[in-house]
Simulated scan of single mutants.
Amino acid sequence: MPTSMAVDQGRTRVDLAGLIEMRHRVREIRLFSMPNRGSPLSGVHHSRLRGRGVDFDQVRVYQSGDDVRNIDWRVTARTQVPHTKLFHEERERPVFILAEQSQRLFFGSAHAFKSVVVARAAALLGWACLDHNDRIGGLVFGDRAHHEVKPRRSKQSLLQLFNHLERFSQGLSAADMATPDALVQALRRAREVLRPGNLAIVLCDERGLDDQSEQQLILLGRHVELMLLPVYDPLDRALPVAGLLRFQQSSGQDSAELELDTNADALRAGYAALAQARMMRWQQLAQRLNVMLLPLSSAEDVVDQLRDQLDTRIPGRHR
C-alpha cells in the first residue's frame, strides 16, 4: 500500500526530492553544444563582439593592433602570411523559467498530471542551464499567487524555485477556482524584469493561449530569447468513445454542468478540430517569433519527449 500511494503521489504532485533527482537525467538530453554543431540554443550565448574569450571563433589575416599572443603559428607557417585567432566573447545570460501550477493543470489521464509535467520539465531545464553556467531564476504562478526568484548562478536559487514548485503542486486541488488570466499576468511580469539577451522558458497549459497571452508572448519575444513548452493531455485533443459524460465546473458560488454524448461522431470531430486549431496557433506563433516550440504530453516521460524532439531538430545527432 505505501508503495502504491507513493507512485500515485508522484503522478499527481511533485516534491523537492523528486525535482532534485532530475539533475541525474540532464545528460540524457543536450540543449547546449558548440554553435557549429547545431545546438537548439546556440547563438543566444555569444555576443556578436569578437574579443578575448573562451570559445574559438575563426582565424583571419593578422592586422595591425592585434594581440601577438593570439597568432596562429600553424596557419602562419602553412600560408606564409601572419594569421591570428579570434574568439567569441562570452555573454552572461540569465535564464527565467515561467512555470504554471494552476487548477487547469491539475489533471492527467495517463502517465502524470500536467502540473507534474511542468514541474519536472522546469527542474530538468533548470539543472541543464545551471550546469551550463547560466544564471537561473524564474516565476512560479498559479490561480491566486505567484512567486519570483531572481536569476543567480547558484544551486540555492534553483532550489528556491523548486520549493515554490513543490508548494504550489502540493496545494493544488480539483475544487480550486481557475483564473483565466494567470498566464497573462505572469508574462506581463516577465516583460518587466527581463532584459535583452535573457532566455525565457515558458511552461504552461496548451489551452492557455488566447488573444491576450499571445500578444504578451509577442511583446516578450521582441526583446528576449524564448522557448515555448505548452503541456497537454491526450484528452485535451481527442474525446474517447465513452458514451454519455457529465462535466461540472464551479466558479465561486455558481456551478455549471455539461453532458456530452461522446458516441456522436460529429461531436468528437468538432472537439478534435478545436484541438487542431489550438496546436496550429502555437506553431504559427513559434514561426512568427522564430523560437523553439516543444509541446509536452502528460502521457509520456518528460525526458524521453525532450530527447526525442531535440533529436529530430538536430541532424546527425545520435543517442
Rank of each mutant, 00 (worst) to 15 (best):
Glu166Phe: 02
Glu166Val: 03
Glu166Ser: 00
Glu166Gln: 03
Glu166Trp: 03
Glu166His: 02
Glu166Asp: 04
Glu166Ile: 01
Glu166Ala: 03
Arg167His: 15
Arg167Met: 15
Phe168Leu: 10
Phe168Ser: 10
Phe168Gln: 04
Ser169Thr: 07
Ser169Lys: 04
Ser169Ala: 06
Ser169His: 08
Gln170Met: 06
Gln170Lys: 09
Gln170Arg: 09
Gln170Phe: 07
Gln170Tyr: 09
Gln170Thr: 05
Gln170Pro: 08
Gly171Glu: 09
Gly171Pro: 05
Leu172Gly: 05
Leu172Glu: 03
Leu172Tyr: 07
Leu172His: 06
Leu172Val: 07
Ser173Met: 06
Ser173Asp: 08
Ser173Glu: 06
Ala174Arg: 11
Ala174Phe: 08
Ala174Asn: 10
Ala175Ser: 13
Ala175Arg: 13
Ala175Lys: 12
Ala175Gly: 11
Asp176Phe: 09
Asp176Gly: 07
Asp176Leu: 10
Asp176Glu: 09
Asp176Gln: 12
Met177Asp: 15
Met177Phe: 14
Met177Arg: 15
Ala178Ile: 11
Ala178Tyr: 10
Ala178Glu: 10
Ala178Thr: 12
Ala178Gly: 12
Thr179Gly: 09
Thr179Lys: 11
Thr179Gln: 12
Thr179Tyr: 11
Pro180Ala: 06
Pro180Gly: 04
Pro180Ile: 06
Asp181Leu: 07
Asp181Arg: 09
Asp181Gln: 10
Asp181Trp: 06
Asp181Thr: 10
Ala182Met: 14
Ala182Cys: 13
Ala182Gln: 14
Ala182Pro: 14
Ala182Ile: 14
Ala182Thr: 14
Leu183Asp: 03
Leu183Arg: 09
Leu183Val: 09
Val184Pro: 11
Val184Gly: 10
Val184Met: 13
Val184Tyr: 12
Val184Thr: 13
Val184Asp: 14
Gln185Ala: 15
Gln185Met: 14
Ala186Gln: 08
Ala186Val: 10
Ala186Phe: 08
Ala186Gly: 08
Ala186Ile: 06
Leu187Arg: 01
Leu187Ala: 00
Leu187Gly: 00
Arg188Glu: 14
Arg188Tyr: 12
Arg188Ser: 12
Arg188Gly: 13
Arg189Asn: 00
Arg189Lys: 02
Arg189Leu: 02
Arg189Ala: 00
Arg189Val: 00
Arg189Trp: 00
Ala190Asn: 02
Ala190Leu: 05
Arg191His: 04
Arg191Asn: 05
Glu192Asp: 08
Glu192His: 07
Glu192Phe: 01
Val193Cys: 01
Val193Met: 03
Val193Arg: 04
Leu194Gly: 03
Leu194Arg: 04
Leu194Met: 07
Arg195Gln: 03
Arg195Met: 01
Arg195His: 01
Pro196Trp: 00
Pro196Leu: 00
Pro196Val: 01
Pro196Phe: 00
